[in-house]
Nucleic acid binder design. Structure first.
Lengths: 225, 225
DNA sequence: ATCGATCTTTACGGGTTCCTTACCCGCCGA
DNA sequence: TCGGCGGGTAAGGAACCCGTAAAGATCGAT
């Protein structure tokens, strides 16, 4: 019973997608132009957007940017174009998945399921993180190290919140950068080095021997309890 | 929406298959000879191959072998021959399904749907690999040998992930190199020797007698459970 | 306008990882 | 017996990644 917005100017494909998505139990909203898509999205707030890059008025990428200004909704991009540039650009701007036309309906529906699964998993952010002597309260933005209050800056909070959401697991550089700084910052790895260092100086007993904020070389960072 | 390559020298059957596949929404590529089939396949990379065993130049089995050297594409074999030998041989060489002529179009289309469904299901990479005493967790990038944590480098993870995706089967040198190092590294076989050695020293009980990371001389490597 | 806090950007050193080369062996056909 | 081939092993230097410090840039509050 999730609501899906499908944006495409090809009426045949639109119809096919509507039939298949309805058969899977989704409510389907349609838009044939970029302007209509943006308007419908903010009016109806669907849980998922299927977005064709080839639109008559706005560029699909432009639609994606406008959605991302105010929403984290999962977006699956469709494109007939072969160039890898489109793919990179779309994913950088915050698309969750990219499907090249032609595609199989089974594959498409699998990607829809995957996108919705990821979105629902992300919805539940933890409110606190506690480890030996360390406490982080993400609701009140209040942190203590051995009952001593410690001050974290806004960006430090966002980094820690993202890591706490997946605590114990590696969060890749790209994921971390995209959720904290924005979809187009996936390659600015040096930000992370600076902030990891700063955060460790605050939350770790021995910052040179971190026990909580762990680096996995070449992969990303992990918040350990 | 998927692209299907149909290989047959019978122009009547070719026409029938094209009409029916198009009616089901597939894009159809045609080949009348084995050589043409192989060339078209690697040029166009369709999602499914329909292959008649009776061809004027190459044997159909030979075409299948050439496809399997570099691709896991689902292949449905057609044959007028009655002998069970053909069926066994085709399936042994990696065909996904076998249809004897004459066949009903409904049955044929059902098998096409099934093959495509399996293929899209398999596209998702496995999250873990477990064998006697060895555990690889590709999500958290965490590996243990007899409950002892062991450290793998990013490239070692990528090699193992690719092998685990097809565990039990041989992955060719070319495929491994291309997915791990990039499309232009298909000939740098020496990378693999070095990394296979390094990985064995970590995951194998006796690296000189590997039980998991197996070499198939002249073909590639296989990850054995 | 000035100041302080925060974020961005740059630079450098050390450690790890990767690439490259060289040499070894066993197998096989000439 | 000899190369040739494919694979395993070892080692050094290059490239890369990370931690660290510190200097600009930005912004809001005073």
């Amino acid at each position: 019973m999730t609501r899906v917005l499908v944006v495409d100017d090809d009426s045949v494909l639109l119809r096919t997608l509507r039939i298949n998505l309805r058969a899977r139990g989704h409510e389907v909203l349609l838009a044939a132009t970029g302007a209509q898509a943006v308007a419908t999205f903010f009016a109806e707030q669907p849980e998922l957007v299927i977005l064709d890059l080839g639109l008559p008025d706005l560029d699909g990428i432009e639609v994606l940017k406008r959605l991302r200004e105010r929403s984290e909704v999962p977006v699956i991009v469709l494109s007939a174009r072969q160039h890898a540039d489109d793919k990179v650009e779309a994913l950088d701007e915050g698309a969750d998945d990219y499907v090249s036309k032609p595609f199989s309906m089974d594959e498409f529906l699998a990607r829809v399921r995957a996108a919705l699964r990821r979105a629902s998993a992300e919805a539940e952010a933890p409110e606190t993180f506690t480890a030996a002597g360390l406490q982080l309260d993400f609701v009140n933005h209040h942190a203590t190290r051995d009952s001593e209050p410690l001050h974290l800056t806004p960006t430090e909070w966002r980094v820690l919140a993202e890591l706490a959401k997946h605590h114990g697991r590696v969060v890749s550089h790209e994921d971390l950068l995209r959720t904290v700084w924005g979809p187009s910052y996936g390659r600015e790895h040096h930000y992370l080095r600076v902030f990891a260092n700063q955060i460790r100086r605050k939350i770790e007993l021995d910052p040179s021997q971190p026990r909580h904020l762990i680096n996995e070389p070449g992969l990303g960072y992990r918040l350990q309890q």
